[in-house]
Write a protein that binds this DNA or RNA. Sequence first.
DNA 1: GCCGGACCTCAACCGCTGATCGAGGGTTGG
DNA 2: CCAACCCTCGATCAGCGGTTGAGGTCCGGC
Lengths: 219, 219
Amino acid sequence: MAKPELSIGEVLQILQAEFTDVTISKIRFLEAEGLVTPARTASGYRKFSAGDVERLRYVLTAQRDQYLPLKVIKEHLGAIDRGLRPAAGGPPIAPSTPASGPAADDFGATGTDLRLTRAELCAAAGVSTTLLAELESHGLIVAEGKHYGGDAIVVAQVAAELATYGIEPRHLRPFRTAADREVGLIEQVTGPRRTDQTQQLAALTVRLHTALVRSRLPR
Amino acid sequence: MAKPELSIGEVLQILQAEFTDVTISKIRFLEAEGLVTPARTASGYRKFSAGDVERLRYVLTAQRDQYLPLKVIKEHLGAIDRGLRPAAGGPPIAPSTPASGPAADDFGATGTDLRLTRAELCAAAGVSTTLLAELESHGLIVAEGKHYGGDAIVVAQVAAELATYGIEPRHLRPFRTAADREVGLIEQVTGPRRTDQTQQLAALTVRLHTALVRSRLPR
DNA sequence: GCCGGACCTCAACCGCTGATCGAGGGTTGG
DNA sequence: CCAACCCTCGATCAGCGGTTGAGGTCCGGC
């Protein structure tokens, strides 16, 4: 399987879906600080592997959710590289951030209208094309034309992680149904165009959903 | 019970045993930042109670061991003051885990152990008892015995806000169903007890749900 | 009643972290 | 060939977490 290496701009697009405040210069800065070391083309362009993107995600998560200074994050990464399990409470090594933070309610600004090809999506999410196909067959990921949006990355990542618990794409169909119904309700109020109201409502319903799940979790 | 109130110099002595880098000016600075508020004598001298010293110890520990910014520590202290149980996982009495407050998607730590009466819940969420009753009749809020958990506040608040868009509790039943199914799926994997895994999985499924909703929202 | 040490306030300053900016210039793809 | 993208490197910056010092007050002992 060819591993499409991404340019810094593409990496930016991918990460901005999840971290609104990442910039090109920040990514370069993080390299200068030794937190990632992307490959280079002959002409000096950075080329990021899926692993590099993963690493950046780890850094940004640790910064945002645990307020760790870069120095400490770097140590953690070093420990991981040496094969040690990092300190407990650290962000999962695989992407399973409890998408928290002020960003949680942020339905507007996020999701730069990313347009990924199939291969880019697989690379960005670190999943096989097989899994992607399965997710599509259950309607969990839908292409618009030949491209996928930024949310597809999150869906794919989460699905991959759930798979490690034995939860397969087919078990996730109800999520699709629930999401469709939720969006349907919103559209009944705001009409079929995306507006500020659409986003506000979506933020609210998602908040509701989250609180309900939490309240029903075993004590 | 004599309450020996300490001068700033005495406090310094005490704390320096444990935190070598504490200074008088640092203690004063922490007061200026609102992290402690020692009493004052008539002439303006600071007088620290045992509780104040405890508080300082908490601040210094959180800084040293968890790298938390003062702003966040202050929030935690505020939460403790308001009677919320702080998170588990930190040293002595220290909290840990991502910030509470606005950053509310954390499944491990948030103030779920809250036990509110009906009246307290209505007051905290700013809703009428009528709305609460309606939410209960649709199973969106469920009391455990005579008390409600912290998530009920969120549910009530969101429901109230949705009502301003014309969305009424009865329209929200599907959310309850979806949440129940979601929790059911999680319990199939982890069993009926709450574990770390339960929380991780919940974080994942909620993330999935959010991404799905977003991806289906009108462009 | 006076002296020294502990304490007070307030404004200025400081060093570090975590970036951002811009000038000046090369690379790539249509 | 040109626009969009990428490169480096040095300057600059903003905020955090304090420190410093000037100028003055308070308190206990002699």
